[in-house]
Design a protein around this nucleic acid. Structure first.
Ligand SMILES: [Mn+2]
Ligand SMILES: [Mn+2]
Ligand SMILES: [Mn+2]
Ligand SMILES: [Mn+2]
Lengths: 218, 218
DNA sequence: ATATATTTTTTGGTATGCCTAAATTAATAA
DNA sequence: TTATTAATTTAGGCATACCAAAAAATATAT
């Protein structure tokens, strides 16, 4: 298998498995990678043979120790590059993901560690996601999705899980950025949309948006 | 054709054609890219169909206007990255080529221009090779290979055309680096090896080495 | 000019990564 | 517990990038 293909599967499985706790099913992977389900079945079989995942037919996949190591490596490269692009090269948080998708495949430890060191070995990337250290150790958190928040509670926005330009530009328009304080003032039963107080403005967001925002109870 | 494959052919053809002046034969390409001659024949036919090169059977290839534009783009990216790696990220001139071989394929104009701007829009890379500007304009020079130098003349080392770690480490050992002043004190008829005065030391280099060093008459 | 050597091209083949359509298996609802 | 629906897998194919061996074309040496 091409190294780039391997890496895209592994990081996707890691990301979809909530830090390796859950088993990931084929459809989720197929959607994330924009591949036909049949292609995914084949790919997973090969990764299983490479002993990078444990793949049980009609059930799902999880990373092996080796697979997990590799996945964390790629994720580290991705997030270090995102941070470098934002902090050192003047790109917006809505622009960095796409470029990092390519840069992450360049496997040069000295390079990544140098970038990390210039940045002061950051622990979070521009989207609030934790950056694994050189050994693959990654910050754990007890943050929740805004979609799981409770009425009348106050939260601080800690991160986002959707890194697309479209989504991030939308958030910026609403001033729903990292560090923002929000208070949940209504949760609509009908569609789970949420009304928030944010920067003294009342804003309404769909459940889909709330699913992609990570918050911490204040 | 995969974009990366296209790019590797085009930059190779550009580099081997002495700034698009000469026609390049298949064998030279096949050696440079480490591909079977049969593979090269196929590849060139495809590039011809894409109108990126003019390929005449059993004769050779040259870049079209479009091909040349693309080639200069890739070469710009390669050389900007090499310079950035050396000047901003602390890599040696003997380490940068290999990394740049991968980075060059990331096509993001804003990124490259930002790097260039941080570097002060340099005109030469760490190997003394000219960096095309955003429009593809490239510095022309009347430098010669050290292998074409004349007895008893004084020269300044302006660059190298072999970027391998092995070669550059050898040059460093001999203090034959960019800026060094050399005087040709003997050219051996038998094997075209050259004896030089360099930094008050007498050193002897093979014709193969002299072929890869670019100098200017002092 | 002819033989020899070199370069290029053709031919036939492998491996990888992807796809669609059909078949199978698993999950859910009636 | 049977349908019905949804997810997964298999089967059959296509395109790309490569290669080895043989054939053809071109260049070189005698
Ligand atoms: Mn990202
Ligand atoms: Mn990120
Ligand atoms: Mn180089
Ligand atoms: Mn260079």
């Amino acid at each position: 298998m091409r190294q780039e293909t391997i890496e895209n599967y592994l990081k996707t499985i890691y990301n979809l498995s909530y830090n390796n706790t859950a088993v990931v099913n084929n459809q989720t992977i197929s959607k994330k990678l924009n591949l036909n389900p049949a292609t995914v079945t084949e790919g997973l079989r090969k990764l299983h043979n490479l002993k990078l995942i444990v793949y049980e037919k009609s059930y799902g996949s999880r990373l092996t120790t080796n697979g997990s190591k590799l996945a964390l490596d790629i994720i580290r490269r991705h997030r270090i590059w995102e941070t470098y692009l934002a902090k050192e090269l003047g790109f917006g948080w809505d622009e960095v993901h796409e470029i990092a998708e390519e840069l992450e495949h360049i496997n040069n430890t000295k390079l990544i560690n140098k970038l990390a060191s210039i940045l002061g070995n950051p622990i979070y990337d521009p989207h609030g996601e934790p950056i694994p250290d050189e050994k693959g150790k990654i910050q754990k958190s007890n943050f929740i999705k805004l979609s799981e928040s409770k009425l009348k509670c106050n939260y601080i926005v800690m991160g986002v899980t959707d890194h697309s330009t479209l989504f991030l530009k939308y958030l910026e328009k609403q001033k729903l950025i990292i560090g923002a304080e929000v208070k949940v003032i209504n949760i609509e039963d009908f569609d789970n949309s949420i009304t928030l107080n944010c920067n003294k403005n009342k804003i309404n967001i769909s459940n889909k948006v709330a699913e992609s925002i990570i918050v911490q109870l204040k």
